[in-house]
Amino acid sequence: MGLFGDPAYWLPLTFAALMGVSILIYVVLDGFDLGVGVLFPFADGAEKDRMVASIGPFWDANETWLVLAVGLLLVAFPAAHGTILTALYLPVAVMLIGLILRGVAFEFRVKAPTPHKRAWNGAFFVGSLMTSLAQGYMLGLYIMGLEQTWATWAFGALTAVFLTVGYSFIGATWLILKTEGALQIKAVRWARGGIWGLVLGLGAISLASPLVSERIWAKWFSVPEIFALAPLPLMSAGLVVLLWLALRRLPTRDDSWAWFPFVASVVLFMLAFFGLAYSFYPYVVPEKLTLYEAASAPESLFIILIGTCVVLPMIGGYTVLAYTVFRGKARDLRYD
């Protein structure tokens, strides 16, 4: 028994929460920069440069949250880490190849000779698309309990498309915030075109997860939980309506409210994430392995927790610094 009770109870829970927060931050942050990559074919040459300029100073740190999330899974729940990643062997490989392509294309597209730029732009788009699709597929398969059947593959394919459209939507809202002029008008149009993906994606996941598992069904559709949880879907629906209204009026003449679609989408992603987290708790491998069964030894978790408590606020601090330094409309990325 420790200071706050039994560490075998609260340590795994704390690490599950930390991992959840990392995944959420990753999905939001890399979501928008992956989305910008997915939107690449719709933009012309100069617009592409400006789009990359809007994410250039951030993408690297954004991807680090993925490393932290998978690192925490690896560290805190080694048994689950092996099970999940070997079950998702091929989609993980597709995602990694996608991440490699887009990560290096960032640099190569502006350093290679001009005739090669087209090819690297292509690599940037394909890499972003592969990553988004793979992540969506993995999400679908995870919801389906990592079962490998035709039905789960089909559901995975569906979530792959929806998450990709969802990423391109949040990417478009980021561009509304960070750009101006013709590109901003285009971004508003992209966002209008992408909002259906968000709605269908949220809908499909909300419908499928209770249907797959009786346990999840019981967690949502029993009294009094159903009343306590009602605000979650209601708020989501309200936000979608507000987003739809805002996108009809944007961009405004004085650029007011340009922040709104991005912030609203972030909140939407958060609501969806909490819904999922509520559904799956306490399982880390759905219906097979709880986070208490999968957790590693408390003494090792303790060592990491201390470091995390010290370092995470610092990471937050300098992340805010970076976003402050590069606030405002995106300018050309220059080394001088």
């Binding site: 250039g56 100073p57 951030f58 690297d60 740190a61 991807e63 680090t64 490393v67 932290l68 690192g71 925490l72 690896l74 560290v75 805190a76 080694p78 590693s296 090792s300 060592i303 990491i304 470091g307 995390t308 370092v311 995470l312 990471i315 300098y318 992340t319 610094l321 970076a322 330094v325 590069f326």
Partner: peptide
């Protein structure tokens, strides 16, 4: 695990964020 976690926490974020600046 802890060694890799400390690498991510103390090194990766530091370099990734300040690289932009």
């Amino acid at each position: 695990g802890p060694l890799l976690a400390y690498e991510v926490l103390t090194a990766f974020f530091l370099e990734a964020v300040f690289l932009g600046i």
